[in-house]
């Protein structure tokens, strides 16, 4: 067991426990976007930063990827931490304002405005979908491509992946919430699962033993509706 102090409280955890798990176990809230139980920690969104070390050696680290160390002193809500989190949320709001999850986090942290040039992106590259696809669905159909401002998520050469089983897992975990709604805009969809409405619920014969993650997306109903409309027009 490893002994450490979080916000002054002593606790002991098993080797390999992340600071996030330890802090949450004690009930200290830490906001996260790219973390999900059951998926490997990745450390992309940086929202979960906490402060460790003392004096001039004090620094911020992401609690989801940092493992507990003997004698570590962790502070989860110092001024420095809060300032960093608010700036990250401001950056998120400036680029992905339409996400309900991000809006809620921002208002929880009293971020009331964003001072950058407004953008409308629908991906924060948190990598949840990539990890979901690889680790839980064992498909690995999508991945990261490019670097810097060119970085994006998709399949190699944008060719529809043969490994994709249209399970919808990627859409289910997305915190930017955009992909659920791109069913009629195939260019923007990641796996095309939602765009290709030959999804589990539609072609029952083929996929009837698959679980549909898209319960609330009502894509299937919309298709039915569209079909009916077509028939009416004819």
């Amino acid at each position: 067991m490893i002994n450490l102090k979080i916000n002054g409280l002593t606790t002991s955890v098993e080797k390999g426990t992340s600071l996030l798990e330890a802090a949450r176990f004690l009930g200290f809230p830490i906001p996260t976007l790219c973390h999900m139980d059951g998926l490997k920690p990745y450390g992309a969104c940086r929202l979960c930063v906490v402060e460790i070390g003392e004096g001039s050696k004090a620094k911020l680290v992401t609690s989801c990827t940092y493992h507990a160390e003997e004698g570590l002193k962790v502070r989860t809500a110092t001024e420095r931490v809060v300032r960093a989190r608010r700036m990250i949320l401001e950056l998120l709001l400036a680029s992905t304002p339409q996400s309900k999850i991000i809006q809620d986090l921002a208002s929880e942290h009293h971020v009331m405005q964003q001072r950058f040039r407004q953008e409308h992106e629908d991906c924060i590259l948190c990598g949840l979908c990539v990890r979901m696809c690889k680790e839980q669905m064992a498909a690995g159909a999508i991945g990261f491509r490019g670097r810097g401002t060119e970085r994006s998520i998709g399949t190699p050469f944008d060719v529809k992946s043969e490994d994709c089983r249209l399970c919808g897992g990627c859409i289910y975990v997305c915190p930017a919430c955009q992909l659920r709604c791109t069913y009629n805009n195939p260019d923007q969809a990641i796996c095309g699962g939602c765009a290709n409405l030959a999804a589990p619920c539609i072609e029952e014969l083929k996929y009837n033993d698959l679980m549909c993650y898209m319960k609330p997306c009502v894509a299937c109903e919309i298709v039915e509706y569209e079909k009916e409309k077509q028939i009416k027009i004819k």
């Binding site: 940086r46 590259l125 990261f144 670097r147 810097g148 401002t149 060119e150 970085r151």
Partner: peptide
């Protein structure tokens, strides 16, 4: 901005 790997949101 072009050479950052793009993983950390705050860097990218």
């Amino acid at each position: 901005k072009d050479e950052s790997c793009g993983k950390c949101y705050t860097c990218r």
